[in-house]
Amino acid sequence: MHFTARFGWPVAAHAARAILLFGLAAGPAAAQAPDPARVQRGEYVFSAAGCLGCHTDKDGTPLAGGREIKTPFGSFYGPNITSHPTFGIGRWTEAQFRRALREGVRPDGAHYFPAFPYTSFTGITDADIADLWAYMRTVPPAARPNKPHGLGFPFNIRLAMIGWKALFFTPGEFKPDPGKSAELNRGAYLVNALGHCGECHTPRNLAGGLDRSKWLAGGVLPDGTAPNLTPHPETGLGKWSPGDFIDLLKMGMTPDGDFVGGEMAEVVKETTGKLTEDDIKAVIAYLRSLPSVENRVRKPKS
């Protein structure tokens, strides 16, 4: 009797705790089952923002993290953003998710390194973030622990990001320019906020900040170069016809009939190739409206 009593209590407690935990885990999802229309819109935002690449290891489980992102400061590893409660972002709230994108701040208050392109994502509208969040909650959980970033001193000091952000980061939702057409504004939003094209295609200074005077005029990457997208006729895309842009964005073909390799091929497959016809047109209109910047992108000799 005594035995059962002694054992009885913890068992009951476990059961109660299990119910409590289950209740907590299932609670938010059960409270508001995601609206299918919202999830569908969120999936489009997800593609347009190109989340998959950095958050999925080569041939790995989608969004379970692990992809190496090489930078001059060291290697970052994209984290698990599946709905797993421990290893992913399953316990996050929508407000925390919005803050991560808009302000580059983790739920615990720590600052993200700008390898996570919140410098661009800050422009994503509240409506798109809400839809994206609805989609993220449908991503199946994957129990894959995050890999620590491989950064050397002093770049591993997360607190230094406060200073970096003060210098190079302007938080705020994208505001359409009333002097420009709806198409140009949509293109600017797709390229600069969701598509975060500038993160590779804009040159960076020594501290890793984007050189906004040479917006989209090409960047140098650890494994290659990202071309100048401005309409400069010699060093940019000034000689491209609208059809050339369409072929590149939809299937990755360059005007000489070659097909892009590496990261850009992935961008075409996961992002630009999934845009609607209207959005492709908007992207092209915006790129062709950019100020022409002469900048021949060359990989420095190592």
Partner: peptide, 20 residues
């Protein structure tokens, strides 16, 4: 036609060096 383009791009993605 699109399947041809997809085949070109699908192979360049993992197997061709990025253009520079």
């Amino acid at each position: 036609f699109p399947a041809v383009g997809a085949a070109c791009g699908g192979c360049h993605q993992p197997y061709r060096k990025p253009q520079s």
